[in-house]
Each structure stands twice: as structure tokens, then as C-alpha cells.
């Protein structure tokens, strides 16, 4: 596929998405990336080992089988970071997968949210679980506590739709 065409489509899609967002500044900065990563850098874990780090800053080669076996490390470094997810989003965008890239960027934000809180928020988003205010509070929490602006936007949008379609707590 013509590269210029890809780029122009991506640019257009991005600008459209930004129009629909209340706080586009933070998220759009993240989503445009800026490391110039493409499918040629994939798999990142092989071709761009220099970029891939654990949450504590270790490189892939420093995460050793022997250290897990000996109990020297507890395995808490076996996690993806926000940076790596944003790199993968760039790669996704380079092969014209805009929505998937967006998902990876939301995921990057969620790396900052604890497992338990993620499960709770997911359950709160299910139909008839929350009042509109409760959903808006979650959105604020995500934005203020975790700097998760894209997720906050998604939840505000859900609050509006749930209200319109009678899917809030007490609507059943």
C-alpha cells in the first residue's frame, strides 16, 4: 500500500478522533508517538531490544530464567510498560490498524491501575451497575489519579449512552 496514503489516512483519522474528545491535548500527543517505529521494528523483543524495558528498567536480557529459579527475583518484572505499549501502538498504526493502536494506548494508561481496581472498574461498567455520577467519578479518578485520559473519555461516553439507553443502576 502507498505509504503516503497510509500516512494521510492515519492523520485524518487522528484529527477526527481528536475533535470528538474533551481533552485531546494529552492523548493526541501520546497517540502520534514519535519514535518512527514501523513493522520493520517488529518483533520489538528481537529487533528493538534497546527499547523494551521492564517496569524497573531492566532489559529483556537481564530478565533471567536462573534468577527466577533461584528466587533472586520474584517475577514482578514480567510486566509490560506503558512505553512498550505505546511503541506497539506505533507499529500497529504503521500497518494501518488505527483502532487497535488506540486500544494499546488505552492499555498503556491502564498499566498504572492496580489489578483489583481494574476488575472493579470493569464490573462497574457492566449494565445496570452504576449511576451516571458513579461512572463520572470513575472517569475523574482515572484522569486525575492515573493520568488515564483516553480511558476517562471512554467512560464519560459510556455514561452518556447508558443514560440515553436506560442502562444505569435502577433502570432495570
Amino acid at each position: 500500500m502507498d505509504k503516503e496514503l497510509v500516512e494521510s489516512i492515519v492523520r485524518n483519522v487522528l484529527s477526527n478522533l481528536d475533535e470528538g474528545q474533551s481533552s485531546p491535548s494529552k492523548s493526541s500527543k501520546k497517540s502520534t508517538g514519535g519514535n518512527g517505529l514501523t513493522d520493520k521494528d517488529y518483533p520489538l523483543g528481537e529487533k528493538r531490544k534497546d527499547l523494551v524495558k521492564t517496569p524497573t528498567g531492566k532489559s529483556l536480557d537481564d530478565v533471567k530464567f536462573a534468577d527466577i529459579i533461584s528466587g533472586k527475583t520474584d517475577g514482578s518484572e514480567l510486566k509490560i510498560t506503558a512505553d512498550t505499549l505505546n511503541y506497539q501502538a506505533e507499529i500497529a498504526r504503521s500497518v494501518d490498524r488505527e483502532q487497535f493502536a488506540k486500544n494499546l494506548e488505552r492499555a498503556a494508561e491502564l498499566t498504572r491501575v492496580e489489578d483489583e481496581r481494574i476488575l472493579e472498574i470493569y464490573n462497574q461498567l457492566r449494565p445496570y451497575r452504576s449511576t451516571k455520577q458513579e461512572l463520572l467519578d470513575i472517569a475523574d479518578e482515572l484522569e486525575n489519579k492515573y493520568d488515564a485520559v483516553i480511558n476517562a473519555q471512554l467512560i464519560r461516553e459510556a455514561a452518556d449512552v447508558y443514560e440515553k439507553r436506560n442502562r444505569l443502576k435502577g433502570d432495570r
Binding site: R106, L110, Y122, L125, V161
Partner: peptide, 26 residues
């Protein structure tokens, strides 16, 4: 359909959040 989606105890938004939750754990 919306009704079956909701009967399945989810919405497109809860499912989208779940998708990102998985990716956030690699």
C-alpha cells in the same frame, strides 16, 4: 442486538475496557 448484549451482562464500553485491561497486562 443491544438486548442480547445487555443480557450477556456487558456493553460495548465494558467490553472495550476489558480489551485494554488484557493488553495492559501484556
Amino acid at each position: 442486538t443491544e438486548q442480547v448484549f445487555v443480557d450477556g451482562d456487558d456493553t460495548p464500553w465494558s467490553k472495550s475496557f476489558l480489551a485494554s485491561a488484557y493488553a495492559s497486562r501484556g
